[in-house]
Design a protein around this nucleic acid. Structure first.
Length: 258
DNA sequence: ATGTCGAGCAAAGCTCGA
């Protein structure tokens, strides 16, 4: 079984690209982030042509997450991250499919820091930590996939110099991610490539960063203990960053033995 | 500070967010 996650950076701008990519790669489950669209604006038709059903948590202009399932309608488990009923940002969606619980999450960017946006990021992270702990305690096969907006270590970035003040590299952000892993989650991509440098998922549009391969690893797939021994492969679909009209993120995928 | 995208507002170039 193949599961993928992709920060698509506007699902309307890239609906044709999404359709072609689905047809070419055929993952069983796909998590999308940064739809920049409401549910009404979501290209259900393009997904359907590629053979996918879709569940969408959308919002006008910003954020937005979705989960697509091949040859099936997704069974939605929850549409919000628990812990703050006043938080209306579309950043979390949980679906059950083929015996796996899959979450598509879009953690707040947090820039500029310090400031209210960074505070929101850290508060969202604490909510995720609490919910992830309760999910782990079920003992079920679970994948938490998405754009975490965290560069876990200096191995996950080309060079830290121009990013030292960025919210993605702050010690508080990295500490929260480390505490999440310490609960018992496995970072699938890093687990399969423990020593690799150049394992990136995001290349900023600015400053010629894609041609220079000046990337960051911020899109992660965390799997629960029952899935860890079943992990066959995990990788980045890097060519998708180089196509005409690309998102600034490449898809990440993993394969589980069934 | 810079750089490049995408969306929104509204009719063109700005602002915001990333």
């Amino acid at each position: 079984m193949k599961i993928a996650t992709w920060n698509i950076n506007s699902v309307r701008r890239r609906s044709a690209l999404l359709e072609h990519w689905l047809q070419a790669t055929q993952p069983d489950i796909v998590c999308l982030q940064e739809l920049k669209a409401t549910e009404a604006e979501f290209p259900f038709d393009a997904c359907e042509r590629a053979g996918y059903g879709a569940a969408v948590v959308g919002q006008k202009t910003w954020n937005g997450v979705a989960v697509l399932t091949r040859d099936a309608e997704p069974r939605v488990v929850r549409r919000t991250l628990p812990g703050d009923a006043k938080d209306k940002q579309a950043r979390y969606l949980e679906v059950a499919h083929a015996g796996v619980l899959v979450a598509s999450l879009y953690l707040p960017n947090g820039n500029p820091q310090p400031g209210p946006k960074f505070d929101y990021k850290l508060a969202w992270f604490e909510r995720l930590l609490r919910h992830a702990q309760s999910l782990l305690q079920t003992g079920e096969p679970i994948v938490l996939a998405g754009d975490y907006n965290v560069v876990p270590t200096d191995r996950d970035i080309y060079d830290t110099r121009s990013w030292l003040d960025d919210a993605l590299l702050q010690p508080e952000s990295r500490d929260a991610y480390a505490r999440l892993l310490a609960q018992g989650w496995t970072d699938a991509l890093r687990h399969k490539h423990p020593k690799d440098f150049g394992l990136y998922t995001f290349w900023d549009y600015k400053r010629n960063r894609w041609p220079r391969d000046a990337g960051l690893r911020i899109d992660h797939m965390l799997v629960s203990a029952p899935l860890r021994p079943k992990l066959r492969a995990a990788s980045v679909h890097k060519p998708m960053r180089g196509v005409e009209g690309a998102s600034d993120h490449a898809p990440v995928w993993l394969e589980i033995a069934v």
